[in-house]
């Protein structure tokens, strides 16, 4: 009997496909998310838009909050650790969290190195903007990927950019001659063997969810249309007027992303979505997607 194998860690993410993972800050929100059909929840102290507003250093959530959420629901619970923060990750692992997000939403603890995620029994999800970043994270042992997008903005544009970029680069790789792959690996800063594997498979070897700016059911469906395996929704749900209704609408739009009449119905009278931020108004240092290396 073997625990923490690559198959077990990646397999867990495979089971989440076609689903929605929701950010929650307490047990009550976690129950609303589970009831709405979320496939997992991300336990946080603050949702990304509040982290953005609060400024300062954003760290792993208070373990009390994570524990409260774990006790409230039977679906998997994820939690965020700072990039490169070995101890935050080990603490979350020791608590029995089901998945750790090594996340740029928190202030990085290391500006050079990510976690060696192969060392852990718990699986990790990481953000990526392009195939190089995706491959480096998989190389370090990430079992699941997501677009970085631009968290806490309610603006889908960056998530779209990142999903399209990764998928276009995978297509390019698939069509390459074998003798071009090493130079591509050099240019992308990606492990060569992994690129060969992706070329052979025709896709990434782990699931890739959309994250960072999903604010409406139509946004979630758009990301599925662009090839996302599922969707993370952060600030969108519990910053809306009717979270339960909003959460259900996002789940259904994700499942039936090409049923446009249904999405029209789901989108009626959802109340005011989060206001959102135009990306060009964000100062470069306020862009969370630049964190990670």
């Amino acid at each position: 009997m073997k625990i923490g194998t690559e198959r077990v860690k990646r397999g867990m993410a495979e089971m989440q496909k076609g689903g929605v993972i929701m950010d929650v800050v307490n047990a009550e929100q976690a129950k609303i998310a589970e009831e709405a059909g979320a496939v997992a929840v991300m336990a946080l102290e603050r949702v990304p838009s509040d982290i953005r507003a609060a400024g300062g250093v954003a760290r792993m959530a208070d373990p009390r909050i994570v524990e409260e959420v774990m006790n409230a629901v039977t679906i998997p619970v994820m939690a965020k650790a700072r990039i490169g923060h070995i101890v935050e990750a080990r603490v979350l692992e020791a608590m029995g969290v089901d998945y750790i997000d090594e996340s740029e939403v928190l202030t990085p603890a290391d500006e050079e190195y990510h976690l060696n995620k192969r060392d852990y029994t718990v699986p990790f999800v990481c953000g990526c903007r392009d195939l190089g970043e995706a491959a480096r994270r998989i190389g370090e042992g990430a079992s699941m990927l997501r677009t970085k997008g631009e968290p806490g903005t309610g603006n889908i544009v960056e998530a779209v950019r990142h999903m399209r970029k990764v998928n276009a680069q995978v297509r390019k790789l698939v069509n390459m001659n074998a003798d071009e792959v090493m130079t591509e690996a050099k240019l992308l800063g990606a492990p060569y063997e992994l690129l060969l594997e992706i070329k052979e498979l025709g896709r990434l070897p782990v699931v890739n969810f959309a994250a960072g700016g999903v604010a409406t059911p139509a946004d979630a469906a758009l990301m599925m249309e662009l090839g996302a395996d599922g969707v993370f929704v952060g600030s969108g749900i519990f910053k809306s007027d009717n979270p339960a209704k909003f959460a259900r609408a996002i789940v259904e739009a994700t499942t039936h992303y090409q049923d446009y009449k249904l999405i029209a119905e789901l989108s009626k009278e959802l109340g005011t979505p989060m206001k959102g931020i135009e990306i060009s108004t964000l100062a470069p240092e306020a862009r969370m997607q630049e964190r990670g290396w």
Binding site: K2, I3, T5, V8, M12, P76, E93, G96, D98
Partner: peptide, 9 residues
């Protein structure tokens, strides 16, 4: 158990 107890056998 939870995910960390997930296994192959």
């Amino acid at each position: 158990g939870r995910q960390r107890e997930s296994f192959e056998a």
